[in-house]
């Protein structure tokens, strides 16, 4: 069995990225073939590409030829940008519901708070939830919300909390900083401003490129490198579309 893991994995990433990488690694350890699709081209992934908006569905359809299962980590910008409107939400989630039909095993991992503008309910999400063989949420409150959404099979819902990043990600970096006791407040305030300015710069670059996601921690060999994603290839889009049309036509032709 080959499983496609969709979401940001390190490097550089944060806690969520590290957990997704750990999951992919565990799947591999059980003997499955795993392919990772990450929006951040710095990630140690098999494939890089935009997974925001309708692009996610197109990527899934394209990869479904070689993969039986899929794990999608819902997070900032995946599958919807925080600014997504009703139409974009309906189109993206509707297409996602269609794309998920190509997989026999579908796991949806939801960050908390659940990053779905417009909430977890509604017709647009029903097809997506109904295709899921497993829906992983971080806490009971999220479970109670999701279980009420149309299309959700309560038996598929699993609560698996993300460990609090006591010593990890950006917090760790703060822990490593050294401050003199004299005028402590000014030093910390300056560090806050500088780190925020760096985060704004990274965010701005991502927004320009349409790939808003988890912030870089600004440390290590990947600092200063671009988080740019692979742009959508029009030829690929056309091939995916044509392939899908062919498949539907073939299906219709074989029906009695």
């Amino acid at each position: 069995m080959t499983t496609l893991v969709v979401g940001t994995v390190p490097p550089p990433g944060g806690e969520a990225a590290a957990q997704l990488a750990a999951l992919a690694s565990q799947l591999r350890a059980t003997g499955e073939r795993v392919e990772v699709l990450s929006p951040d081209r710095r990630s140690a992934a098999h494939h890089h590409g935009s997974i925001t908006g309708p692009m996610l569905a197109l990527q899934l359809i394209r990869r479904s030829r070689s993969c039986d299962g899929v794990v999608i980590a819902f997070g900032p910008g995946v599958p919807l940008a925080a600014t997504a409107g009703r139409v974009e939400r309906a189109v993206t989630l509707g297409l996602l519901g269609v794309a998920l039909r190509s997989f026999s095993d579908v796991t949806l991992r939801l960050a908390s708070p659940i990053p779905l503008p417009g909430g977890v309910g509604g017709r647009a999400t029903a097809a997506m939830w109904s295709r899921a063989t497993s829906i992983v949420v971080e806490n009971e409150a999220d479970r109670e919300r999701v279980v009420l959404a149309p299309g959700v099979d309560a038996a598929c819902l699993v609560v698996r909390p993300t460990a609090a990043p006591a010593h990890g990600g950006r917090s760790m970096a703060w822990n490593e900083l050294h401050f003199d006791t004299a005028d402590l407040r000014s030093q910390v305030q300056l560090a806050v401003r500088e780190r925020a300015a760096e985060a704004r710069r990274v965010n701005s670059a991502r927004v320009e490129l349409g790939a808003k996601g988890v912030l870089d921690d600004g440390a290590g060999p990947f600092s200063g490198t671009s988080a740019r994603v692979s742009p959508p290839d029009p030829v690929v889009l056309a091939r995916v579309f044509a392939g899908r049309v062919r498949r539907v036509l073939r299906k219709l032709a074989t029906q009695p």
Binding site: R170, S171, A173, L184, A196
Partner: peptide
């Protein structure tokens, strides 16, 4: 010398990350 200020959500995030990551320094503030 006892408090931090923020001007947007990004700076608020950094302030909170500081409190989470360096609790002893935050207590000193």
């Amino acid at each position: 010398g006892g408090g931090l200020t923020y001007s947007d959500e990004i700076e608020l995030g950094e302030c909170l990350a500081f409190v989470a990551g360096a609790p002893k320094t935050a207590a000193a503030l």
